[in-house]
Amino acid sequence: MHARVRAGDPEAFRELFTSCARLVHGYAVRATGDPALAEDVVSLTFLEAWRLRERLKDEGDSPRPWVMGIAVNVLRNTTRARRRHERAMARLPAREPLPDFADEVVGRLADAEQLAAVKVALGRLRAREREVFMLCVWSGLGYSEAAVALGVRVGTVRSRLSRARTRLRRLTDEALREPARARGQVPGDRLITVVRSSGESQA
């Protein structure tokens, strides 16, 4: 399939999309917390893959490390563009506040806090550690595949992932406890357990 993709075979590229699109989307959703933006990342990733198809090398049985390497770069660029947009929007006059519908979503509060804690913790990781964690733990790439995707050595992937696991456990704990202290409550440990078990599954 590698040769067919390089040659611009539409059917081969369709197979490539089918086999990797969900992986790219899951990576982007977890990185951004925005399903709509994740769809954009998928589209841009495969547009870029088509443009760069002649660079696909015959290394390994699967092209997914190559695709995920493109996805990582697309996400970096998309995130920078979104930050610029958010800064521009912040300079606009504030809108009238919307009504508070908190009572309607009170049952979702705990899950929302937990998801927010993960996002906060991931945001506090160094970018390179965050990318390795998301590729290896959340996207299921092996060490060698992640190394190809990021253009680094396998040993570098291992060391970054180890640091990411350690820092993510601590940062998630802190992110969960900060809002809880503000309410005078003690948070549960379910989310921390999820983060730990996810990290340890790659050990």
Rank of each mutant, 00 (worst) to 15 (best):
L168C: 03
A164D: 04
E145F: 09
R158S: 05
G142T: 15
A146K: 08
T172R: 02
S144L: 03
G155W: 12
V152L: 10
L168K: 06
R165F: 02
T156G: 10
L171M: 02
S159Y: 11
G142V: 01
D173I: 05
R163I: 00
L141N: 11
S162G: 15
V152E: 07
R153C: 00
V137A: 15
L135H: 10
D173Y: 15
V148G: 09
L150M: 15
L141V: 10
A147C: 10
G151Y: 06
D173L: 11
V157F: 09
A149N: 08
G155F: 05
S144Y: 03
R160Q: 12
A147T: 10
V152W: 02
S162H: 13
A149H: 09
G140R: 07
L168M: 02
V137W: 06
L168Q: 04
R167M: 05
S159K: 14
R153W: 00
L161I: 07
E145W: 08
V148L: 12
D173G: 06
A147M: 10
R170V: 00
L171I: 02
D173N: 06
V137K: 06
V152H: 03
V148D: 13
V154F: 00
G142E: 14
A147P: 15
D173H: 14
A146W: 04
L135M: 09
V137P: 08
L161E: 14
R153E: 01
A149S: 14
A147G: 14
R165K: 15
A147N: 10
L141S: 08
R163G: 15
R153N: 00
R158P: 02
T166S: 13
S162T: 12
L141T: 11
V157L: 05
G142K: 12
R165Q: 12
W138E: 14
V157K: 03
V152M: 12
V148N: 06
V152F: 04
A146I: 08
A146Y: 07
L141W: 08
T156A: 15
S144A: 15
R170M: 00
R160E: 07
E145C: 11
A147Y: 04
L161N: 12
V157N: 03
R165M: 03
V154M: 00
G142A: 08
A164Q: 09
R165P: 02
L135E: 10
D173A: 06
R163C: 09
A164T: 07
R165L: 02
S144D: 14
L150A: 05
R170D: 01
R167A: 15
S159R: 14
V137F: 01
W138I: 05
G140H: 12
L161W: 03
R153H: 01
R165E: 05
A149Q: 09
L168G: 00
V157P: 01
T172C: 07
V152G: 04
R163A: 15
V137G: 08
Y143I: 09
L168T: 03
A149I: 08
A146R: 07
V137H: 07
G142Y: 00
V152T: 09
V137S: 12
A149E: 12
G155P: 03
R165N: 10
T172N: 01
R169K: 06
R170N: 01
E145I: 09
V157T: 03
V152K: 07
